[in-house]
Computed example of a mutant assay.
Amino acid sequence: MTEERVTRFPGKTDRPLTSARIPLYSVDAIAGVVEVYEQISDNEPIAYLEIPNLPKCDGAIYVVGDSMYPLLKSGDIIIYKVLHDINNILWGEMYLLSIVNNGDAYVTVKYVKKSDIPGYVTLVSYNEHHQPKDFPIESIRFAAHVKASVRINSMG
């Protein structure tokens, strides 16, 4: 059995992305939840994060609530990549979601799993005190894959 040798010829622009500036947005500055991405991207970032070797990301926001506790705590920062086509969802992964269902609007961070109900998704919290909930897939107005999180353990 012979071993093939592969040679790579990098182009002028091929270089490893060691660090990128990721805009950190304030959720408080968002007027509504229906068009979360447009509202986030229309606002000025409150800061920028630079984290080495992070995959390409679109932004970061602070976590509010305890549905993903203890994995994510209120005040942690999540870094996300916007999902432009809901059909490309990676089942079982964590997403930042904006959902409008029966006149109620939610912005949440959950694991997204396939539902037993056709045309629905099951949103699952890490916190065992929060029950899984099924939503129609068309009620998802915005989805962003959570790529990383940052926790600050000391304020001084």
Score class of each variant (00 low, 15 high):
Thr2Pro: 14
Thr2Cys: 12
Pro10Met: 08
Gly11Arg: 10
Thr13Asn: 15
Asp14Thr: 09
Thr18Tyr: 15
Arg21Phe: 13
Leu24Ile: 01
Leu24Asp: 02
Tyr25Ala: 11
Tyr25Gly: 05
Ser26Thr: 04
Val27Ala: 06
Val27Cys: 08
Ala29Val: 02
Ala31Tyr: 06
Ala31Leu: 01
Val33Gln: 13
Val33Thr: 15
Glu35Gly: 15
Val36Gln: 02
Asn43Ala: 09
Glu44Tyr: 04
Ile46Asn: 12
Ala47Ser: 15
Ala47Asn: 14
Leu54Glu: 07
Lys56His: 11
Cys57Leu: 03
Val63Ser: 11
Asp66Glu: 14
Leu72Lys: 03
Ser74Asp: 13
Gly75Ile: 06
Ile77Tyr: 00
Ile77Asp: 02
Ile78Phe: 06
Ile78Asp: 02
Ile79Glu: 00
Tyr80Trp: 12
Leu83Phe: 04
Asn88Ile: 01
Ile89Met: 04
Trp91Val: 06
Ser98Leu: 06
Val100Tyr: 08
Asn101Ile: 05
Asp104Val: 07
Tyr106Gly: 01
Tyr106Met: 01
Val107Arg: 13
Val109Cys: 03
Val109Gly: 06
Lys110Gly: 02
Lys113His: 14
Lys114Pro: 00
Ser115Leu: 07
Ser115Gln: 04
Ser115Met: 05
Ile117Gln: 03
Gly119Ile: 02
Val121Ala: 09
Thr122Leu: 09
Val124Tyr: 10
Tyr126Ile: 10
Tyr126Phe: 15
Ile137Cys: 09
Ile137Gly: 05
Ala144His: 12
Ala144Trp: 03
Lys147Ile: 10
Ser149Glu: 01
Val150Asp: 00
Ile152Ser: 04
Ile152Pro: 01
Ser154Ile: 06
